[in-house]
Design a protein around this nucleic acid. Structure first.
Lengths: 255, 255
DNA sequence: AGTCTGCTTTGACCGCTGTCAAGTATTTAT
DNA sequence: ATAAATACTTGACAGCGGTCAAAGCAGACT
């Protein structure tokens, strides 16, 4: 089964993705996990995974539900099996910054001490697994390769946030949207159709705005602008066809 | 010897901070290190530190010199012993985003794979130690507490970048500058003088602008604005007296 | 099917911050 | 010390993106 079977277009329907059990003896919680091969835990042997799975709780949330809230006691870390999640921070007057969109295989909740420093909400229906913080930190000691993998993933995330800071601080609205479309495309490598690439956007315009430091109206105008230039086409609100990725790439950095 | 002895006001002169050797038998490279107690390596025992110090090279750079450049092969990670460093990324047309200011005890260069994804430059004269990537990753395995400490520091940095994304995407110019002044104050806990707090800013106005996603002119106008409100006073370009930290705090979040 | 509700698009206008330019202060070099 | 270069401040003006308002669209629920 290939990775692309799990790109996020596959769960937009909200239906539950359930793999047929394979022939291994994994604990049910992890054995059938559709994101296992791209998750934190993919470094564990079958034997270690079974042990590891004992500390895991399965959770499902439907779209728009809160998974954890800024300020809550950060008792658990969460790993996404299917679906899309947004991570956000708010100012007291309601201004919101989305700091990341997370998908199958991504985890969150580790970069906090006592309290979550951000809110995580389900964008689509999601399946996630929850792991007590104290226990996963134990696991990092028990299974050093797991700790290394978590560290690696954290470093990759840190690099991505640096790129996003460049975007937020220095790019124009058009550059921001082009960068975003390409980043989403790159991250989930959706199927190519001819020369065009179709990108699924499970999040709303307002989510995109709050991710890029813009308003909904500006996002909408930029989508229209790119359409008029012939670089994209819109199929409903949540699908974008990239007609000319090279042009988008050029626009993304102001060249 | 307290941490505050090493707050960054102490090296603004550019003079070399050198501690009297203590009575231990540390290797010279690390034994006299003025940032040892706040650095990565502070978790190592005297014995382990001695071993660890064998892979370290001391480096000095004077202000404005490049330590490593975006795109260079990322062979080393760097730890700051004294001085201030700026980390930045650039767009092809020269627009720059500073993603962080680093000081004694901070390290950089780990969150990259083959190439550095950012440029690091000395703001003041600096003393840094350089450690080959491959060897420090080895050390993480040999001294697990060192790896955990690096992981912890990386997670703290990641949380800070989330806060900075909120600032870049959603705060006004005034809110950005107030947040910045308070963050610098909080980070280095400089000496209080009466009720006022004096904050040292080794970086230029243009560095501050590129850190906050603004222009030099806007930074300058905001400094003047805060001065006219009576919340700060300027002592030369590189010292700010916070006359009313509470007011700044309120302004930092738009309350 | 039809209505409702929330999401998205579009338009008109405004204001914050950027741009350009000139003048002042500070640092560096001689 | 003096001169030159660099850094900072201030002013006038412009424009990008925000705000406010209204209309179009799509999915949800009877």
């Amino acid at each position: 089964m290939s990775v692309s079977s799990y790109n996020f277009s596959s769960f937009r329907s909200g239906s539950v993705v359930r793999l047929a059990a394979d022939n291994s003896s994994y604990n049910a919680a992890c054995g059938g996990c559709p994101s296992r091969h791209i998750s934190l835990c993919n470094v564990l042997s079958a034997r270690d995974l079974k042990k590891f799975s004992e500390i895991i709780t399965d959770i499902r949330k439907s779209a728009k539900q809160v998974i954890c809230a800024e300020g809550d006691e950060s008792g658990n870390i969460y790993n996404i099996r299917t679906g899309a999640v947004r991570i956000s921070k708010m100012l007291s007057d309601g201004r919101r910054q989305i700091t990341g969109f997370l998908f199958a295989g991504d985890f969150f909740g580790l970069s906090c001490r006592n309290k979550y420093s951000y809110t995580a909400e389900a964008i689509t229906d999601v399946e996630i697994c929850s792991i007590p913080r104290a226990k996963i930190i134990d696991s990092f000691r028990k299974f050093p390769e797991l700790g290394e993998r978590a560290f690696d993933m954290t470093r990759i995330e840190l690099e991505a946030t640096h790129e996003q800071m460049l975007l937020l601080g220095r790019k124009t609205a058009r550059e921001k949207l082009c960068s975003f479309l390409l980043a989403i495309r790159g991250k989930y490598k959706p199927l190519d159709q001819g020369d065009d690439t179709i990108v699924d956007l499970p999040m709303s315009r307002s989510d995109i705005a709050d991710f890029l430091g813009l308003t909904v109206e500006t996002i909408s105008r930029q989508f229209t602008g790119l359409y008029r230039l012939g670089h994209i086409e819109l199929e409903g609100f949540h699908k974008v066809v990239l007609k000319d990725a090279d042009a988008l790439f050029a626009l993304a950095e102001g060249d």
